[in-house]
Design a protein around this nucleic acid. Structure first.
Length: 961
DNA sequence: ACCGCCGGGTGCC
DNA sequence: ACCGCCGGGTGCC
């Protein structure tokens, strides 16, 4: 492999702290506070705001018949029962009330007749109604055709819309009729259309969703394929299945799901749309295997094995001196389609220890840019006379080296350093490089994995497109085999003369692809507009909360007609959320077609996909000492008094930050009395004096929220905070979210939580934090009940088997610092990983901990959310969770860092919980959240007000009020 | 459009 | 006839 970096190694860029972005928490914000650089935010909001409403909460208002006129002036055609879209056209010179009628492809069919348009225009413009149409018959009329219009909107607006229509002499039929023959189960019987007769209960829906990704191993997905020899790791059976599946999808010429050929036309069975042009095959899909099943390896195998039109990448680097011995001497194992007949030794090459030496060996070869520049390029377009020497067979052999066949042997000799080996089909128009986009923290993982799994001799050119020195030259980038970059880089580059958007990619792979779920984000647009033949999404959580997430992915996959949200919504999302069986069937068919997912418990040929060791979770209750209990009780009664007062006043949420402060302090007291910072207590209320003081208070509050480990959600997007800011009224939101609110409600924007006035200039970001470590050095070290319990367990463990490694997890980094002292006192060698560490230090920490050397650390102090999903700490077989998390999923994810592929021992997890404390109440909340998460999918997300309600309930539970 | 609508031509039966 | 009726011209918004 060769590694292209513009100047030296990419490590420099990856590791230098100024380029680390932690994504959500405010540890990287510029030192300043008042938010003034609104420019690019507002503009990005502008284009996102257009046409973007919440389609999910719409209810059915009624239907009526209308007419489409002016057919002969437009090219768009429809079929009977085909869905059409309605679009306002205020700029029409003849009628500013004009309403266009478009077919599924967005081609105009005609206009709504003007009298009706006059009635519709005002309510459409005020977004009181969303119109949908179906042409029931007469699709081939020359001048006009009928259209069945259905009206949808917010419940609050229903009456207004109905009255308005009545005033124009139109009466809506309240019964939702079939919107085409493909939706038979939506046929309404009696009563309101909002509750169709054939409906699944929420329970049924849930089980159906659970099953959605099961049984995907049927069909042809059980076929296995050996990777090309250049992959030096033996794939596990399920990884070979993934490879076979991905290769077959990439080379597929099938029609996409829901398309049929009828005569010389192609029909979409969902919308009844038809066109002459054959819709593009979906040469990609979603690899949704659970975390830890080796998606990265499967994709690396894909890149090499299906490198070019079903052909693998050359495995023998044709490179001056070495070349002859290499390519002549090796027996190759793969036939031209990558199907392998040769069996290889089954080794333990997936074990980390076995690869260390290979890795080091590989690295030497690599970071040498000049060297790789001069190297033989496997398929440069510049041709050479030598090109003709290499025929098809030979190419296949040189690439993959089918081990049989004598003629091939003889031809091998032809290749020498003067030969520019060229694929005989090199003029095929397929582009060359694969673009891999992942979160920044995962880039280094990809690099590791390439090094680990790809033979060092394979001439795979990898370029890390990241950092200020990245090459902006599309030509040089398109000479690479793999370009690795981060989501933020793609987003930042977008619209900015980005080479990434000029290149025709062979393949784009989105790692952790669920991060594109927000359809309005600039990021999503930046990614959707990448030009690639083959498109893949890797994710461990294909559908996190709602079908919306899936839509973003489908849109990225360019699955017609879902690239337009209306068709997705009308044909799948709405029917499914309304409990329509047909909708669910379509969803199932779709998912089945484009997704491969195995969980840790899936089986291949009756055997578990991974034979992971056992995992046991123990809760160990801790009793506070008398002194600790005293402090705790007094803090508790103080806190209860404060929170109780808020409850009485009904102002719990307006004082949310204060409530949180109380809770954090109680949780900290459960861990160690020294965790409670003396400064921040009781300085909450009071009329504020100077702006300086106000600012400081707000900064303290936002820090509190961010560092409390509470995984706060933004009340606007209901997602976890992204780029958090705090308002004057001390509420924390995502910066983009609140900017949008301010922008759209200007000039009198109000806080969504407490309705006090908010201004852009008053928003505060969390300043760069030196983090609380080491800040209270003056306090004399002492232990705590929990620390004692931990040390007791660690020492016992060391006596039993000193080689067992442990992870000690807390949400409070200052707690980890206190534990450090205890560890030192008892002579433990440990390392540490938390969110404040620069990438370089993290990598060091992980590597030293994973090392098997005698003097390597046996303990890793880990902050709960440090490291991305990929964090691999399999060296540990014990986990000590020092304090319960709000969100049980965060705990699970943490456990999975060592309970994953590569773990050889049973994993024992100990959760410390203080008896009769806020911690015990947190366990209750955890189990509620688990239930909620289990039922979450497909059902609507809670609204902001339901969210508030839930939070208040949580607080009640926590403080026993 | 094998319609509706418009406006000019026309006017007992 | 300030009507009706006829038939030609015409046609989305």
């Amino acid at each position: 492999m060769s590694w292209g970096f513009m100047r030296g190694s990419a490590w420099k860029f990856l590791q230098s702290p100024q380029y680390t972005r932690s994504g959500s928490r405010g540890t990287f914000a510029p030192p300043n506070l008042f938010y003034d650089d609104v420019q690019d935010n507002v503009s990005s909001l502008d284009d996102s705001a257009s046409g973007e409403e919440d389609l999910d909460s719409l209810v059915f208002f009624g239907m009526m018949k209308g007419n489409v006129v002016g057919l002969r002036y437009y090219a768009g055609v429809v079929n009977n029962n085909e869905m059409v879209a309605l679009q306002r056209e205020p700029s029409n010179p003849y009628d500013r009330n004009a309403v266009k009628v478009n077919n599924v492809n967005g081609e105009q069919v005609g206009h709504i007749k003007k009298e009706l348009a006059a009635a519709l225009a005002p309510i459409m413009d005020r977004k009181l109604v969303r119109m949908e149409g179906v042409v029931p018959y007469g699709a081939h009329n020359v001048f006009t055709m009928p259209v069945n219009l259905s009206f949808w909107g917010k419940d609050d607006d229903k009456k207004g819309v109905l009255d308005h229509m009545k005033a124009h002499g139109y009466k809506l039929d309240p019964v939702l009729k079939s919107s085409g023959k493909s939706f038979p189960s939506l046929d309404a019987g009696s009563g309101s259309g909002a509750s169709p007769p054939v409906q699944l209960t929420v329970e049924q829906l849930k089980t159906e969703f659970d099953k959605l990704f099961e049984d995907l191993k049927e069909d042809d997905k059980t076929q296995e394929m050996e990777p090309v020899k250049g992959i030096q790791t033996v794939l596990l059976p399920h990884q070979k299945q993934a490879l076979a599946w991905m290769v077959s999808r990439e080379n597929s010429t099938e029609l996409p799901p829901f398309w049929e050929q009828r005569g010389n036309l192609y029909y979409n069975t969902l919308t009844n749309f038809a066109e002459k042009e054959r819709p593009e095959s979906i040469r990609g899909g979603i690899l949704a295997d659970d975390m830890g099943l080796g998606k990265t390896l499967s994709v690396i195998a894909l890149i090499l094995t299906n490198f070019h039109d079903g052909q693998p990448l050359p495995t023998g680097k044709v490179r001056s001196e070495k070349q002859k011995t290499n390519s002549a001497g090796k027996s190759r194992n793969t036939a031209s389609q990558g199907q392998c007949s040769e069996t290889r030794e089954i080794g333990n090459s997936q074990e980390a220890s076995a690869t260390v030496s290979k890795r080091q060996k590989a690295r030497k070869v690599k970071y040498d840019f000049n060297d790789s520049e001069e190297e033989w390029l496997p398929r440069k377009t510049k041709s050479s006379p030598a090109c003709s020497l290499v025929d098809d067979d030979q190419f296949a052999m040189a690439l993959s080296g089918a081990s049989s066949g004598k003629k091939k042997k003889s031809k091998t000799k032809i290749i020498d350093k003067t030969t520019v080996q060229t694929h005989s089909k090199c003029d095929r128009k397929l582009p060359r490089p694969t673009l891999i986009i992942c979160p920044l923290s995962v880039i280094s993982n990809w690099i590791d994995q390439f090094e680990q799994h790809v033979q060092a001799e394979v001439d795979l050119k990898i370029y890390v497109y990241y950092g200020p020195e990245r090459s902006k030259d599309p030509n040089s980038l398109s000479q690479q085999d793999v370009v690795l970059t981060s989501y933020s880089t793609v987003t930042h580059d977008y619209g900015n003369n980005s080479p990434l958007h000029k290149i025709k990619w062979l393949r784009v792979v989105l790692d952790e692809g669920h991060t594109i779920r927000n359809p309005n984000a600039k990021q999503t647009k930046a990614i959707h507009s990448l030009d690639a033949v083959r498109r893949w999404v890797l994710t461990g959580t294909p559908i996190q909360n709602s079908l919306k997430d899936l839509w973003s992915i489908l849109s990225f996959l360019k699955l017609k007609p879902f690239t337009d949200r209306e068709w997705w919504h009308r044909t799948i999302q709405r029917p499914v959320t309304m409990g329509d069986q047909g909708g669910l069937r379509r969803l199932q068919a779709l998912v089945k077609n484009i997704t491969l997912r195995r969980t840790k418990t899936s089986k291949v040929k009756g055997k578990p996909v991974l034979e992971l060791p056992e995992r046991k979770v123990y809760i160990q209750y801790v009793q506070l000492s008398t002194e600790e209990r005293q402090i705790y009780q007094s803090m508790q009664s103080e806190g209860k008094a404060i929170i109780g007062r808020y409850f009485n006043e009904g102002t719990v949420l307006t004082h949310y930050a204060d409530v949180l402060a109380v809770l954090v302090r109680l949780r900290q007291l459960c861990c160690h009395p020294h965790l409670v910072s003396s400064g921040s207590s009781s300085a909450s209320l009071k009329a504020e004096a100077t702006p300086e003081e106000l600012r400081e208070k707000l900064i303290n509050k936002i820090k509190l929220v961010l560092n409390s480990g509470s995984d706060e959600e933004c009340a606007i997007c209901l997602d976890s905070l992204n780029n958090p800011i705090i308002t004057r009224c001390a509420h924390v939101f995502c910066k983009p979210c609140i900017c949008q609110v301010i922008h759209s409600e200007k000039p009198n924007a109000k806080c969504p939580l407490c309705r006090s006035e908010i201004h852009l200039e008053h928003l505060l970001e969390c300043p760069e934090e030196e983090f609380d470590s080491g800040e209270k050095k003056d306090k004399k070290w002492m232990s705590s009940s929990k620390v004692d319990a931990l040390m007791c367990a660690l020492i016992e463990q060391r006596n039993k088997d000193p080689r067992v490694k442990s992870i000690v997890v807390s949400q409070f980094t200052s707690y980890l610092s206190l534990i450090e002292t205890a560890l030192r006192e008892s002579g433990f060698i440990f390392t540490r990983l938390d969110g404040s560490m620069p990438q370089k230090k993290r990598t060091e920490a992980i590597q030293s901990f994973q090392s098997t050397a005698d003097d390597s650390p046996t303990i890793m102090l880990l902050s709960l959310k440090a490291g991305g999903v990929g964090l691999n700490l399999t060296a540990a077989s014990r986990v000590f969770l020092m304090d319960p998390a709000w969100n049980p999923a965060a705990e699970e994810q943490c456990f999975d860092r060592c309970h994953r592929l590569g773990q050889t021992k049973d994993v024992i997890i100990t959760k410390y919980v203080v008896k009769d404390s806020v911690e015990e109440n947190m366990l209750k909340i955890q189990s509620k959240k688990r239930e909620l998460a289990a039922g979450a999918f497909g059902t609507k997300k809670p609204s902001a007000s339901e969210m508030k309600e839930a939070r208040i309930k949580e607080i009640r539970t926590l403080v026993d009020l």
